[in-house]
């Protein structure tokens, strides 16, 4: 308990929150401008790379993960790892249209006619905006 109080006194000098906020805004502007170059790699980098940087900055400086005990960070990281695990386990089934020994005829581009049901309209490809 005493440590908690001591912990606190060390950080009595507040970081310059406004400066961090300003950096975040600059990053936001970059992430909006990035796609205007219309280069896919740049778009992805400016969109998701910057999102990660922004999240890191908010977590570190605003949520004060930098002064929290390490295991709080590990806890958050573990949750993210579980999500990656989930993604890795599910993506082979949900993301692919042609798996090992199965196809999704309604969504697949390669094998349109396989499902012998002429009454089915392929929605996935058309996007379905006509509904």
């Amino acid at each position: 308990m005493a440590e908690a109080a001591a912990h606190h006194d060390e950080h009595h000098e507040h970081p310059n929150y406004v400066r961090i906020w300003a950096i975040l805004l600059v990053l936001l502007i970059i992430s909006v401008l990035g796609p205007m170059l219309e280069i896919r790699v740049v778009t992805l980098l400016t969109a998701f790379g910057i999102a990660v940087v922004k999240a890191y900055m908010v977590a570190k400086n605003f949520m004060h993960l930098n002064i929290e005990p390490r295991y709080v960070v590990y806890l958050m990281a573990t949750m993210l790892v579980f999500m990656l695990l989930f993604f890795a386990g599910v993506a082979p089934d949900v993301m692919r249209f042609e798996g090992d020994n199965w196809v999704k005829p309604m969504q697949s581009t390669a094998a349109p006619g396989t499902l012998g049901h002429p009454d089915f309209v392929p929605h996935g490809e058309a996007g379905g905006e006509h509904h």
Partner: peptide
């Protein structure tokens, strides 16, 4: 709903 771009296996996972 697989007929509209969804996937029933997602729920199972």
């Amino acid at each position: 709903d697989p007929t509209r771009g969804g996937d029933p296996l997602l729920w199972q996972h």
